[in-house]
Simulated assay, not measured.
Amino acid sequence: MEGLQRRPAAAAANARGDGAQQPQRVIHCDVEPAPRAWPGMQMLAVAAILVLGGLQFLPATHFRLHQDRGRNWIPIDPSLHAADHQVVGVHIISWISCLDLRTLAALTNSTLSSSSDPHDVSFTFLTPEGGNEQLHFYKIKSVLPDSNITVTSQKKTKEKLNVATPAGNFLWSFRSELSPIIIATQFSRKRHVYISPDSIVKGKVEDLAPIDLGSYAISAAEDCSKRLGDYISMDVLSAVQRTAPKGLVYTEPFDKDTCLLDFDVLIVEPRNLKRNLVDSIAFWAKAVNLACHRDSIRLAITLAFYNDYLKLPTNWKRANDNTDILYNDGPKNVCSEDGRQHEGKGSGEVWQQYLSQKSNAMLST
């Protein structure tokens, strides 16, 4: 006896009297082969992948500004120099040796208040090692929420500096005076503006961005309150020049009326720094050892950069109320040589324009 079998769908339909209807063909996927691709389709797909990959190597024709919320594409003019294609922005770096968040906030707010495009200005503050940079960041952001700031510890810079080496030990020994050089050689390798932390900025920092340094590493203002000849004899300088290692010092005669460099505001292009710059500063610091520690370093810096810098406009020299940068005349922390802090009283009123009493109280705790 044969087992029961399921009748095909067509046979069941005929049994119901639908003999005129033709049975439908059933495709069995596990038995019949897959449909064949069009001839040459695989080659076409490979060619498309190669073409799209090759497009990635073509030069850019458009760019977008990260500040543009509309994300509009801007065509690149090939007739311009490559440096002109870069997004113009101002990156300000400051090194504070005696931590006071009030001075950093006043510097930030005065700079942004004077800028025509504050969203294009960013700040990096290097604070003394041992502090909580994350806490410092949030405190400044709490009073200036729209500021673009970064707070980092000087400890990281010290580790990169390698104070075990003669050059590293020299730089760290005079870190307050040589902080712009430390930043340029160890921390930031991109063009930036260094501003002394105890400053109030009244000018537009974006005016500094388009200044062309050419082959120079820095652009600095000059302090002509005293001249080179007021610190050292030209005969002594000539004698030092004759005995100095080759290539380490300026070889032409020095001018006794040369002004000293002012390091309160600097435009820095680290890529143009000479490899022997630190050695040159260290050499001059030992050769012109003056009674005043700070004067020795300032003089050494001036001699190391002699005739090798671009002069910054005089309005960026802290001198009087008519310049683009002023001294912070508010209260601030002052550190003694043993590292202890005490409050320095500020008698001015300019700082109050950029730091409210409430913010001052928040940042002073």
Score class of each variant (00 low, 15 high):
I195S: 05
W95F: 14
H192M: 03
P253N: 09
D279L: 04
V193Q: 05
A164V: 13
L112N: 01
Q357H: 07
T111G: 03
S179I: 00
W351I: 00
V88N: 13
S364K: 15
A9R: 10
D308R: 12
G17Q: 06
Y231F: 15
E349W: 04
S199Q: 07
T251S: 10
K160E: 10
D207A: 11
S364E: 12
G130T: 10
I297D: 02
G3I: 08
A105N: 07
N272K: 13
I96S: 02
V236H: 08
A37S: 07
A282S: 14
L260G: 05
D146H: 10
Q86W: 14
F305N: 02
T108D: 04
W38F: 08
Y231N: 01
F170V: 00
Y194C: 01
D257T: 11
A217Y: 05
S238M: 11
R294D: 11
Q352R: 15
P197W: 07
E32M: 00
P78K: 03
K204E: 11
N360L: 03
L213I: 07
I297V: 10
C98R: 05
R191Y: 06
A239F: 00
K226V: 13
K190C: 10
T150K: 12
L213A: 01
I281D: 05
L161W: 03
N14I: 09
T314H: 10
Q86M: 11
D329C: 09
N360F: 07
Y327W: 07
M41W: 10
W351G: 03
D279G: 06
T61P: 02
P270G: 02
Q352C: 06
V193S: 03
A9D: 11
V151K: 04
K256E: 13
F283G: 00
K204T: 03
D230E: 14
C29L: 15
K226P: 01
T243W: 02
M362A: 06
I211K: 09
A9E: 12
P197H: 08
G203E: 11
L55Q: 05
C259R: 05
K274H: 06
G40R: 08
Y309S: 00
E222H: 01
L144T: 10
S219R: 02
N315Y: 04
Q352K: 15
S233P: 01
N289R: 13
F254K: 01
A83W: 14
P245M: 09
G330M: 02
A82W: 14
R102M: 08
I325H: 01
A60C: 08
A300E: 03
L44R: 13
T157V: 15
L273Y: 09
